[in-house]
Write a protein that binds this DNA or RNA. Structure first.
Lengths: 196, 196
DNA sequence: CAGATAACTTACCAAATGGTAAGTCTGTGA
DNA sequence: TCACAGACTTACCATTTGGTAAGTTATCTG
């Protein structure tokens, strides 16, 4: 029962931190939700901040496995971007809390963010090299690679995790709309990226 | 001294809520920062939630005046988009907390978000009509207008308010980089939007 | 069977939180 | 000058917060 509880706590904290935020989530709340006491949480994770660190680790792992599969080095040109965007939207639909936590950490920074930051650094470094190679090969439009990636990243994460804005646009953030949003995002990126 | 204090409180709360978040900001903290007592805040705003409502009102006003000037109906085609993006980046540099609050509210939703939501609905409604007109005129690529706007919105807000991601990309989020980010974002959008 | 260890719970606690009640001071109009 | 209202402060308060200390129970080991 031990390891299971640990995992259940991490599951709950990922959802809570990712969807509601760190300060907005209390340990008591989570404990009640899990049907255990707060002290059981503090038995497995010695403080709330340690729990956050472990939660970020979990999110990094999930992010890696979700996007790692999609970024097969063999696929080239825009196909690879499309694969990544599809994987990101799939993750947003299946586990919105993971991207929520990514956003939380990338915004607030903070102590525990080191791991996610470095994991993202690696992923983004690979991405920069990929984009540069595609530009040199003449398949992608020539833009500043890092800024381009920042725009792509922002567009995808934004579309995938901004339900209130979708509502303001008169779109319900259901699965069908997400599929549509994914298709349109890919078309948008295709237009922006592919060299004439 | 009365009206001044009220405004000073709103200034501080806009910065605090917009940059740190609602739950992460305590009234005592803000009061100390202002050199007054918490009860002085509660004298002007009967509860923390009322303060948030008033703060959102202020942010809506600032957002409106910052972007309203840029969206002159006379400018057409991509120029109008460029004006808007410039205005957004200018706001991000001058008063990052305003966009921070917009993001906070659009993400969390909540009770007090009604005003911002409706203000954004109006702005986005105008934008949808503008984009549709440009598409019909053949100046913009044909994409789903609302999804397109969501992607544009996400890209701009993301680039303008995502300092940690910039750091992960090896870019310092200083003024020079922001200028560069603005230029690249505009180029990115130009490529994505303008019909061949 | 003894006892150690892992996995908890019960019982607290100090600090911080949003909020109430009751004063205090200062200017202002009658 | 005197009442009075506006703009606060001082004094509290109940609740919630993250966290500690001390059990309790079950399982495994020698």
């Amino acid at each position: 029962m031990a390891a299971q509880t640990r995992e259940r706590i991490l599951d709950t904290s990922l959802a809570a931190f990712g969807l509601r935020g760190y300060d907005s989530t209390s340990l008591d709340e989570m404990a009640t939700e899990l049907g255990i006491t707060k002290q059981a949480i503090l038995y497995h994770f010695s403080s709330k901040e340690h729990l956050l660190t472990a939660t970020i680790e979990l999110a990094v792992a999930e992010l890696g496995s979700a996007l790692g599969g999609a970024s097969k080095p063999q696929s080239r040109g825009f196909q690879r971007i499309e694969d990544l965007v599809r994987a990101t939207f799939s993750l947003a639909a299946r586990r919105p809390e993971v991207l929520g936590l990514v956003r939380l950490v990338t915004r607030q920074g903070g102590v525990a963010s080191g791991e996610l930051a470095s994991a993202m650094s690696v992923m983004l470094g690979d991405a920069v090299r990929f984009v540069e190679a595609e530009m040199i090969a003449g398949r992608f439009r020539r833009l500043e690679p890092r800024m381009l990636l920042l725009a792509v990243y922002s567009a995808v994460i934004g579309v995938a995790t901004e339900p209130e804005v979708m509502r303001a646009l008169g779109l319900e953030p259901d699965l069908r709309s997400l599929v549509k949003a994914r298709r349109e995002t890919i078309e948008f990126l295709r237009a922006a990226l592919i060299a004439d």
